[in-house]
């Protein structure tokens, strides 16, 4: 559990972080809460030459509701989402999902931007943002651009962020219909074996750990739009998925769980 040698620089601003990213390119990794990156470094699964610490960019820690959407700074901690009065009114799904990430120490360090950029298909919050139809704001040397959550995730631990881009903000719509999140795991602090997030009364549904990225359950959404019952719609929850097999679950079982949990989430969301 000793990481390989690494240079460390703390960025004083988003601009400085981007400048450092531009300078170091693929050799660099951004460090925010560190609860995904540091364990990988300690196991030497990740060996970046340069760490750029953005964890203290407090200007990127905020939760603001305005004009029908909530804008959240990328370095907002999970615990701040979990205890946000703004989210309680404007986006309770995100608040609830944040409360189920890891354990309290993880939630006090982990950041929303960090978990999205890390792009772990087994993480909770990326699927929630995907179900909500969120928008991600990336800042690079040439300014900011918006990326739809549906376009953001590329593959296992891979997003469409360029090597010189910093994720700065996440926007999700306010209000909306019923919501629910079903997380199935063996221990409370673990990643989901399978998770299902339902937003806006079933208009947005996303699956956790059912493929290389968090996935929109488009077949379920289409079935519901076509008038199917929750049970009927949930029956197609595994369509288009390609879940991993690991010590907790094989693919057949994960697909089964996706159907069961989708039905439960739809029924609970109402």
């Amino acid at each position: 559990m000793i990481p390989a040698p690494v240079e460390y620089t703390r960025a004083g601003s988003a601009e400085e972080a981007i400048s450092l990213l531009t300078e170091h390119g693929d050799e660099a990794k951004l460090l925010a809460g560190g609860h995904s990156l540091l364990p990988m470094m300690k196991l030497r699964l990740a060996t970046p030459a340069q760490l750029i610490d953005v964890g203290r960019l407090d200007e990127l820690r905020y939760i603001n509701a305005d004009n029908g959407e909530v804008a959240i700074g990328a370095l907002t901690r999970h615990t701040e989402l979990e205890h946000s009065d703004v989210l309680a009114d404007a986006c309770p799904l995100l608040k609830h999902v944040a409360s189920l990430v890891g354990d309290p120490s993880v939630r006090h360090r982990g950041t929303l931007g960090g978990t999205l950029a890390h792009a772990d298909p087994a993480s909770d919050l990326p699927a929630a943002v995907l179900a909500l139809g969120g928008t991600l704001v990336a800042q690079g040397p040439n300014g900011r651009r918006e990326i739809a959550a549906t376009d953001f995730f590329a593959s296992y631990f891979e997003s469409v962020l360029a090597a010189d881009e910093l994720l700065v903000e996440v926007r999700v719509p306010s209000g909306g219909g019923g919501w629910n999140y079903q997380k199935f795991n063996r221990r409370a602090q673990d990643w989901a074996i399978v998770g299902v997030a339902v937003a806006d009364g079933g208009k947005g549904i996303a699956l956790v750990n059912m493929g290389a990225t968090p996935l929109r359950a488009t077949a379920v959404e289409a079935a519901l739009a076509g008038g199917a019952s929750a049970a009927e719609a949930a029956a197609v929850a595994a369509e288009g998925t390609s879940p991993v097999e690991d010590g907790n679950a094989d693919a057949t079982y994960r697909k089964h769980l996706a159907r069961v949990l989708t039905e439960r989430a739809l029924n609970a969301a109402g």
Binding site: P39, R187, A188, Q189, G247
Partner: peptide
């Protein structure tokens, strides 16, 4: 300890 499941008080 990510994969070897020692239970906690939560379980």
């Amino acid at each position: 300890l990510m994969d070897y499941l020692v239970p906690s008080t939560m379980e």
